[in-house]
């Protein structure tokens, strides 16, 4: 979704109030209960104001200290930038794992097909991950998350049907959002 995003899309930047930052942190802790307030404070310090960078096509980027933390389409949910995701351990997120073979395709901008998850190197999402939830995708033998996407099939369906798109990829290593410098 961020394949073609470039600096030319930026329309303007404005500073956000500290109350926004407070609310955001509360929201994040509610959404990712394994992330502690202290950790979050380290990533989004009180002293550093958040900025809102508005882009074309109703895209908003939330930045802190010239780092993108989240992207948001219209008023939808916050999509964490992978650099943000990498700061926290894997257990903090709803996740799944793909096999080695799938990495190449994901980094080329493809969605994730079921066989990439059901094969030997893959791990299915846990049962509490529902269809249309944001999932964080890890890969066989790698430490860091390589993409963020929307789950399109339940873990059970992925296992049983084993064909079609399991995850719609939103943001991946090397896409426009990854390469964007504010």
């Amino acid at each position: 979704m961020f394949k073609k995003l470039t600096k030319q899309d930026i329309k303007g930047e404005s500073q956000l109030k500290s109350s926004f930052s407070r609310n955001l942190k509360q929201e994040l802790i509610a959404k990712y209960p394994s992330i502690t307030a202290d950790e979050l404070e380290e990533v989004i310090p009180k002293k550093k104001p958040l900025s809102l960078v508005k882009c074309e096509d109703r895209l908003s980027l939330y930045t802190c200290d010239n780092q993108i933390l989240f992207a948001q389409f219209y008023t939808d949910e916050y999509i964490p930038h992978l650099k943000f995701v990498h700061k926290f351990s894997r257990g903090c997120f709803k996740s799944l794992q793909v096999d080695k073979g799938a990495i190449k395709f994901i980094l080329g901008g493809s969605d994730i097909m079921c066989p990439g998850i059901t094969s030997k190197g893959g791990i299915l999402p846990s049962d509490d991950v529902k269809v249309n939830d944001l999932v964080f995708v890890y890969a066989e033998g790698k430490e860091s998350a390589l993409c963020v996407g929307k789950l399109k099939m339940s873990g059970e369906d992925i296992k049983n049907q084993n064909k079609g798109i399991a995850v719609e990829v939103i943001h991946y290593l090397g896409d426009g959002l990854w390469n964007m410098k504010i």
Partner: peptide, 22 residues
Amino acid sequence: MALVETLYCKICTFPVDFCDYN
């Protein structure tokens, strides 16, 4: 728990374990 330190590649900007795919 502390934050995770990820080493990023200066050349391709990826976490270093993904350099191979670059």
